[in-house]
Design a binder for these strands. Sequence first.
DNA 1: AAATTATATTAACGAACGTTCATTAATTAA
DNA 2: TTAATTAATGAACGTTCGTTAATATAATTT
Lengths: 199, 199
Amino acid sequence: MPKLKGTKEKILETALNLFAQSGYAATSIRDISRRVGIRESAVYNHFKSKEEIFLSIIDKYRFLDLNEKILSDELLEELTTPQRFLITFSNKLIDLWDKPEEKKFMRLLLMEQFSRISGREISVNGLLSELRTLCGMILGEMVKHGIIKKIDPEILADEFIAPLFLIRAEFMVTDESSISEVKKLVEQHVNFFWNAVRL
Amino acid sequence: MPKLKGTKEKILETALNLFAQSGYAATSIRDISRRVGIRESAVYNHFKSKEEIFLSIIDKYRFLDLNEKILSDELLEELTTPQRFLITFSNKLIDLWDKPEEKKFMRLLLMEQFSRISGREISVNGLLSELRTLCGMILGEMVKHGIIKKIDPEILADEFIAPLFLIRAEFMVTDESSISEVKKLVEQHVNFFWNAVRL
DNA sequence: AAATTATATTAACGAACGTTCATTAATTAA
DNA sequence: TTAATTAATGAACGTTCGTTAATATAATTT
């Protein structure tokens, strides 16, 4: 039989697609294997169970490391013009969220966050709180430097993130992203937020 | 055999509990019937399929009719003191969301919104947009009466709702509601929002 | 070239799935 | 009182599930 290189990766990729589309329980090993192009028994050469496939996906995408992915040098240079900074930051976030794999992963998380597959906690809050921490730091610095009003950074972070997240969630259902419309909404939000916090 | 009154309701109630806990696909007719206290075949005296149970649940809880549930007379009297109004409004919303059945229904919606069980669209956005419309109207009136800044009511609605929704979503995972903590967060949000929109 | 390892195949397992069936007891209507 | 309806039962259906075993072949290592 031909050795198809990268079968393991293909299984993970296919499984993410199907899990994100129909949910973990509604997706069978046979569904996955059929799409990969192998028999279901061959899957077990790469993963010892369906749960292990799921957990591998979680582990693969769990590490967002937002700081690295978003905080580029060009962004940090815009810190002197806070409003621009916030818009650029938001758009970077939206672009990140709009990447197909991030989208699918978020869908999977939303669907399975309550199921606790194999005891492991699958939380959307985890991803969110990472983002909240980052925003809290940035906005906290802005407060400290007297760029914006003196408001508890945690509150600022929530107020900044929540509408962005909702915009994102809304456009995750309708698959045709229409990214320009999203960015318009983002800009409107940032303007509102900026007017709320500017001195 | 004894006739147990209300079996149909009991099935719906049990099914909602299990669907909201583990998801539709991971819940079996046997799970449901066992908890109801009948054999799985007896379920089919009341519903012709598993899907019909699911759709019955959706139909039962779909009609929130927010206006009726939230807009009480006492609330409307507070319209002269907008900040108080917003806090009362938010707390009413949180109380509504905190009702066990609403909570479970929202969980179910969050889990199954992407699955499109039996073609029927199951959207969280539907519930959200109803709320957004209501808030848009209220805030639009406030703008028109010169109570708050002149900002697009749709934007105002989004900015007002999003943090509330996120607070809600966050406390849906940790089942111990700690409603007082939620209300503190809500109050902080309303204060932020009020300061952003006041003249 | 031989041995080993990795990856696929076919076949099958027991368990669980949603659903149907004939039957029976209890309730309701005539 | 009888007939019809309702709601339960236990058994069985065909299907699909996750998983395992035995086996064959390709790729890699020796």
